[in-house]
Write a protein that binds this DNA or RNA. Structure first.
Lengths: 219, 219
DNA sequence: CGTATAATTGAGGCGAGTCAAATGCCGTGG
DNA sequence: CCACGGCATTTGACTCGCCTCAATTATACG
């Protein structure tokens, strides 16, 4: 578990004593925006989506959590966003009180969480660029490359990329409609940059050109 | 200075000893994206814009800093974004080394910085919603209300709101073009929601309806 | 195998972007 | 003080691409 990588063995043992497990089925909500924050979590398997909602139902997905990611970095008294399972997922959970006590006793754990928060902030700002300034093809291309890179970080193949989330999720993440997402996939396929064996797998055929489309000049 | 509000008087004295001052004229760059991060800053007067740039020149402004805001929350080895002055500005500056030493000695300072980072992360995610899911009028309306609220937090009037940044800055912050920003101001003026005594002042005539346009049902 | 849901594809409209021109503002220098 | 020039802002005309609405096809699940 990633938060533990900053700890020594005996410290990990201590941490594990106040820990409990959660399993989620697809679309199960773990926490809801506005709810009092009583527990924090680390994802051990599966995938979660984090989202904000407007009164009229519009939704923005702010990110997808993958194993090792921590839930609750940004939150204070209440959860700032909703977290739901994209696929069957497992999590470790701690009470906020226990976690506060642990971070106080283990500075390395506290530093690790601060580091993760800063990384999340940089990612959020990269996402602002994607949402505000990239064209649909660029958005989708950079999304695929980002998922591929994260898969590699989890010792999974860079291609084919698994897309456990729906087109609606992708659209709500990239600020597009599902139709535009779908058409963009088709376009990338037609251009020979990707293959779509099925709607939840994307094989990257030409990473270089895909990176060019993403607006990120690689190498 | 806001980072100091967590400290006692003798601690503030200590902090002040390793401090230096910077003055910036409009459009002066303080730090550039990618540059090694040697110093951190707190803004004491004026306004800064934080931005990311693409190779082709497109730009996304990720936020505007106002007095009391800290520069360097998200950054690690290098600055993750460019910071430039929007108007004449003054800053206090510390070497990263000094600051690290100080946060180690004064836990309240470290906690305060962590808290500010988490707040910035929540704001960045709110901004993702604005960029991805709001219509132009909603973007501009929420931008005006946000500036107004921040002005109040600095003991300045809620209206008229001062807009020291250019239309280009606003467009690059909201993911629009300058023409659309300008037309949206004109539309809000025509609807009687705001007045534009000059391009850098906005008088809010009907906060309620402006909030409705922003998609945020207030009260 | 049948049904519900998700994804794709198609047709058409509208609104934000693009290109271009006019106006307004401000600092500079005559 | 006024004239000029550069820049920011506003406004106009038009295009194009994304969204909307609708229908079809594919997929997943019981």
């Amino acid at each position: 578990m990633a938060v533990c990588s900053a700890l020594q063995d005996d410290e990990v043992n201590e941490l594990e004593r106040s820990m409990s497990f959660v399993r989620l089925e697809p679309n199960d909500a773990l926490v809801e925006e506005g709810e009092p924050r009583r527990r924090v979590y680390t994802l051990t398997s599966g995938m979660l989506r984090l989202s904000l909602a407007l009164p009229d139902g519009r939704r923005q997905i702010t990110g997808f959590l993958m194993p090792g990611d921590y839930l609750g970095l940004a939150d204070d008294e209440t959860y700032a966003q909703t977290a739901e399972a994209v696929m069957p997922s497992g999590l470790c959970s701690f009470s906020v009180r226990d976690m506060d006590r642990l971070t106080e006793r283990f500075p390395r754990l506290r530093d690790r969480l601060h580091l993760m928060t800063r990384t999340a902030l940089r990612q959020a700002r990269e996402t602002q660029m994607i949402l505000g300034r990239l064209a649909p093809s660029e958005k989708v291309a950079s999304f695929l490359l980002s998922l591929s890179a994260r898969a590699v970080a989890h010792s999974r193949p860079a291609s084919p990329v698994q897309l456990p989330m729906t087109r609606t999720d992708i659209a709500d993440y990239l600020g597009l409609t599902i139709e535009t997402v779908s058409r963009t996939f088709t376009k990338l396929k037609t251009q020979g940059l990707i293959r779509l064996p099925d709607p939840h797998s994307v094989e990257i055929l030409d990473k270089e050109r895909l990176a060019t489309v993403a607006g990120i000049t690689i190498n």
